[in-house]
Amino acid sequence: MIVLIDNGHGSDTPGKCSPDQKLKEYLKSREIARKLELELNLRMVDARLLVEEDKDISLPERCFRANAYCDKYGKENVLLVSIHCNAAGADGQWKSAGGWCVYTSPGKTKADDLATEIWNAADERLKDYKERFAILQAQGAYDSKQKP
Rank of each mutant, 00 (worst) to 15 (best):
G74E: 01
E76S: 08
W100K: 06
G89Y: 03
D91W: 08
A88M: 06
L59D: 00
Y73C: 00
R62W: 05
W100T: 09
C101N: 13
V45N: 05
K35Q: 14
D20F: 06
V78N: 00
Q21A: 11
Y26I: 02
L50W: 06
D112P: 01
V102K: 01
D46Y: 13
K75P: 00
Y103D: 08
I32N: 02
L49A: 09
A87H: 08
M44A: 14
G98C: 08
P60F: 05
A87E: 07
Q21Y: 09
E31D: 14
E52G: 14
L36H: 07
Y26M: 04
T104H: 00
E52I: 08
L79R: 04
R62A: 01
V51E: 04
K24T: 08
D54T: 14
Q93W: 07
K22S: 12
K75Q: 08
K110V: 10
V81K: 03
C85T: 03
L27S: 13
L79Y: 05
K35I: 10
W100D: 04
N77E: 03
L42G: 11
P60K: 05
A68S: 15
R34S: 09
A33G: 02
P60Q: 04
W94N: 13
V45C: 08
K35C: 12
L27H: 09
N86W: 03
K28S: 11
A88K: 03
N67P: 00
A66L: 02
R30H: 07
G92Y: 06
D20Q: 06
L23C: 04
C63M: 10
S105M: 09
I83K: 02
K28D: 12
L36G: 04
L79E: 03
G89W: 03
E37Q: 15
A68K: 11
A111F: 02
D56M: 09
L59T: 05
R30C: 05
E52Y: 11
A47W: 01
G89V: 05
V102T: 12
S18C: 04
C63H: 06
G92C: 11
Y26V: 02
V81T: 04
K108I: 09
K75I: 02
S58G: 10
F64R: 15
E25V: 04
K72P: 00
V102R: 08
D112A: 06
L59C: 04
E61A: 10
V45F: 12
L38K: 15
K35D: 13
C101Q: 15
L50A: 02
C63G: 06
K22C: 10
K24D: 03
S82D: 02
E37H: 07
S29T: 15
R48E: 11
L38W: 15
E76D: 12
K95P: 00
N86M: 04
L50K: 01
A111G: 09
M44Y: 10
D54V: 11
V102H: 07
N77M: 01
V51T: 14
R30E: 10
G107I: 03
N67L: 00
R30K: 14
W100M: 13
E31I: 07
C70N: 06
L38R: 15
W100I: 07
L80Q: 00
S96A: 15
E61I: 12
G107A: 01
A68L: 10
S29H: 04
P19V: 10
K28L: 15
D54Y: 11
G107W: 06
A87P: 02
E37V: 14
L23S: 07
E25L: 03
C70R: 14
G98Q: 08
E39N: 13
A111M: 01
R30S: 13
N77P: 00
